[in-house]
Measured scan of single mutants.
Amino acid sequence: TRVETATETAWISLVTALHLVLGLSAVLGLLLLRWQFPAHYRRLRHALW
């Protein structure tokens, strides 16, 4: 049971790290898009909202 718990903890930390990385890359990508294509971003936002 001790090994299982350790594996579970490792998986949880791995998944958390993955989610953090994905979230950060998504935010960075959005910022980059907004910085590179302001007109396109505004049009996209206008279409979405």
Rank of each mutant, 00 (worst) to 15 (best):
T1F: 10
T1G: 04
T1K: 09
R2K: 12
R2Y: 14
V3Y: 02
V3C: 03
V3E: 00
V3D: 02
E4N: 09
E4Y: 10
E4C: 03
E4I: 09
T5Y: 03
T5F: 01
T5K: 02
A6V: 05
A6P: 05
A6Q: 10
A6E: 06
A6K: 10
A6N: 05
A6C: 04
A6Y: 01
T7K: 11
T7S: 14
T7W: 08
E8K: 01
E8C: 03
T9M: 09
T9A: 11
A10W: 12
A10C: 02
A10D: 05
A10F: 02
A10Y: 05
W11K: 03
W11C: 03
W11E: 04
W11P: 02
I12F: 07
I12E: 02
I12W: 02
I12K: 11
I12G: 02
I12D: 05
L14W: 00
L14S: 04
L14I: 08
L14F: 10
L14T: 04
V15A: 05
T16S: 10
T16Y: 05
T16W: 06
A17Y: 02
A17H: 01
A17M: 11
A17E: 02
A17V: 10
L18D: 00
L18N: 04
L18V: 09
H19F: 15
H19W: 15
H19C: 15
H19R: 00
H19Q: 09
H19D: 06
H19L: 15
H19N: 15
L20F: 14
L20E: 00
L20W: 06
L20Y: 03
V21M: 08
V21L: 13
L22G: 09
L22S: 06
G23E: 05
G23C: 13
G23S: 09
G23A: 15
G23L: 15
L24I: 14
L24C: 07
L24H: 04
L24T: 04
L24A: 10
L24V: 08
S25D: 03
S25Q: 07
A26I: 13
V27G: 11
V27S: 08
V27F: 13
V27Q: 04
V27R: 01
L28A: 05
L28G: 03
L28K: 03
L28N: 01
L28F: 09
G29T: 11
G29I: 13
G29Y: 04
G29S: 12
G29K: 01
L30V: 10
L30I: 13
L30C: 12
L31Y: 13
L31C: 12
L31E: 00
L31D: 02
L32P: 06
L32M: 11
L32T: 13
L32Q: 01
L33E: 00
L33S: 03
L33W: 10
L33C: 14
R34I: 11
R34L: 06
R34P: 04
R34E: 01
R34Q: 04
R34H: 04
R34F: 08
R34A: 08
W35R: 09
W35Q: 06
Q36G: 13
Q36V: 14
Q36I: 13
F37H: 05
F37W: 05
P38R: 14
P38M: 14
P38N: 12
P38E: 11
A39Q: 15
A39N: 14
A39M: 13
A39Y: 12
H40L: 11
H40E: 09
H40M: 13
Y41W: 15
R42E: 11
R42I: 08
R42L: 13
R43L: 08
R43W: 09
R43P: 05
R43Y: 11
L44S: 03
L44K: 04
L44V: 14
L44Y: 07
L44W: 10
R45T: 09
R45F: 07
R45P: 00
R45A: 08
H46E: 08
H46Y: 10
H46S: 11
H46L: 07
H46T: 09
H46G: 11
H46D: 06
A47N: 07
A47F: 13
A47Y: 14
L48R: 00
L48G: 02
L48V: 13
L48D: 05
L48P: 05
L48T: 07
L48Y: 05
W49P: 03
W49C: 06
